[in-house]
Simulated assay, not measured.
Amino acid sequence: MNDTRFYPIGTPGQPWGAAEKAEWRARQLPVRRYADDVLPVLERLRAGFEVVQYGTLEYAPDRYPLFAVRSRDWNPALPSVLVTGGVHGYETSGVEGALQFLATRAADYAGRANVLVAPCVSPWGYERFQRWNADATDPNRSFVANSPAQESAALMALVAPLRDGMVLHIDLHETTDSDESEFRPALAARDGKPFAPGLIPDGFYLVDDTENPQPAFQQAVNAAVEQVTHIAPADDKNEIIGSPVVAPGVIEYPLKKLGLCASITGARFTTTTEVYPDSPRATPQRCNDAQVAAVCAAIDYALAH
């Protein structure tokens, strides 16, 4: 496979250097605008919440202010919950679902929980329908000390002083057909590895933490989502994207070891949602609704336990 070209950038079997990353970046053109889609929604949310800027991404000539939305009357005596979206900018319902939760349901938890939402962690990727940031780095493998990703470092700095009170972190993602057609081949090419085709699951699933599994919690979230959209079945190996299915619609990753976003709070309850927007049974609104259902079910379970 190493001598077979499966991606237009780089030499098969050789990891990318600066020239290949520059060529890749030059191909990433904006197709939508964070300033048009996300920032006006945040402005409207100021009526009911505190909107805080927690950093600025610098990708010359582009600059992106990073915003989070938090309960206005933050009470350290209450449990706190974190919702993140758009860690992978192209995963649209992660961003829109987080914003929809803020607009429609977040106020329901006033007096019961502190809510912190970072709805678009990677605006450069959001604008370009891209998984990586401008440095060809995956923010969702970069939640580590001395992070190589600006997006990840900024979010970790925002959350650090609030970690002790966090009972829940739900990170909103999608698994798309473009994972197989673009992003996995790009990853293999970037790292100088062969590309092995895989299967995209048709439906919603969750990623639990191998080091802190919470099966009843995951099942409660899936039960709520199932009222909105279908849960992904296992493949013929009883796997979803190469990981063993531990319960219907649930797989596990070692979150901290992989530097995944859902590891940053150390909360008892963590999950990563994976919506499948390319299903013939899905619509953009249904995907957003599934994300909101997951967030609410997760908060409800965490507060009850």
Rank of each mutant, 00 (worst) to 15 (best):
R281K: 10
R46W: 01
E252Y: 10
P197T: 06
C120T: 02
Q100L: 12
N2D: 14
G48C: 04
G97A: 00
I231E: 00
W132P: 02
Y7G: 05
Y54S: 04
N75E: 14
D278N: 14
E180N: 08
P194R: 05
V228W: 08
L206K: 03
D235N: 15
R131D: 05
A304M: 04
A35W: 07
L155C: 07
S279W: 04
E174V: 03
A247P: 03
D209V: 08
E226M: 07
Q130L: 06
V38Q: 03
G48D: 15
W16T: 06
E91H: 04
D37T: 08
V117C: 11
H88Y: 07
P65C: 12
E182P: 03
K21G: 01
T175W: 15
S243E: 11
T104P: 05
T229H: 06
R46T: 09
D135A: 13
P284G: 12
L255F: 13
N212I: 03
R70T: 11
L187W: 12
D138P: 07
F269W: 15
L116W: 02
G111W: 06
G85D: 00
Q28R: 15
D108A: 15
K257V: 07
R27V: 06
A118T: 11
G48I: 09
D278G: 09
R70F: 00
L162V: 05
